[in-house]
Structures are given as structure tokens and as C-alpha cells.
Simulated scan of single mutants.
Amino acid sequence: MNFTRETLWLTVGFLGQAVFTGRFVLQWLYSEIKKRSVIPVGFWYLSMVGSALLLAYAIYREDPVFIIGQSFGFVVYLRNLQLIAKHKDLKE
């Protein structure tokens, strides 16, 4: 198999998209289990990982629209995890 640079970046892009989509599956299943709409902490981790991979892919593709969109999302996901960590510290 000839694994080119382009194939590598397509793999990163598809992996990022798969992780990013996985966050919705996680949220949906978690909410079904809880019988109410809930966003688990794992949703934010998957959001960050998926966003980081998609951002790397967007930078490689030099797509400014995609870069801006993923950059903003990454900041939001990081901030949510910071707020969750802060709230967790206050409980203990």
C-alpha cells in the first residue's frame, strides 16, 4: 500500500469527523439511559479531540472558513472542560 501524505491527511480528516460525530452518539445514548437530555463530560473531550483533528486537517487544506469554525469550537470545548473541573473542585 502506498501511504502518501495526502492519504495521511485524509485519514486525519476522516478520523476527526468520526470522533466529532461520536460525541453526538455518546450524548444521545447517555440521555436515553438517563431518560432525560444530558451532556456527559465525555462529550466535551470528544468535541476537543475531534475539533483538534479537524482543525489540523483544515490548516493542511488551508481552508480559512473551516479553520475559523474549528478554532472557535475548540475554545468553547476547552472552556466547558475548565468550568466542569472548577465545579468538581468546589464539590470536593
Rank of each mutant, 00 (worst) to 15 (best):
L83T: 08
G50N: 01
A85V: 04
F20W: 10
V49S: 03
G69W: 02
D89C: 10
L46H: 04
Q70G: 02
I33A: 11
L81G: 03
Y45V: 12
L8V: 14
Y77D: 07
K34I: 02
I68C: 14
L15K: 04
D63V: 00
Q17K: 11
L90E: 07
N80Q: 15
W9I: 06
T7E: 11
K91Y: 04
Y57K: 01
K86H: 07
K88C: 07
R36D: 02
D89V: 07
I39N: 07
Q82S: 14
G50S: 05
T21W: 10
K34S: 05
L53C: 07
W44Y: 15
Q17W: 04
G69Y: 05
K91H: 10
D89M: 12
P64S: 12
K88N: 11
F72A: 14
L8N: 08
M1G: 14
W28Y: 12
V12R: 00
V75D: 03
A52D: 02
V38G: 02
W44V: 01
V49T: 10
F66M: 15
V41W: 03
D89T: 10
N80K: 05
G69D: 06
Y45H: 14
V76R: 08
Y57C: 02
A56P: 02
V76K: 06
Y60N: 11
F14M: 09
A58K: 00
I59H: 02
Y30M: 09
R79Q: 13
S47C: 09
G42H: 06
P64T: 05
A85G: 03
I39R: 02
L54N: 02
L10F: 10
L90R: 11
A85S: 15
S71L: 14
H87V: 06
A58R: 03
V25C: 06
A18C: 11
Y57G: 00
Y60P: 05
Y45N: 05
K88V: 08
T7M: 12
Y30W: 13
I59L: 14
V19D: 01
N2K: 12
G16L: 00
F3T: 06
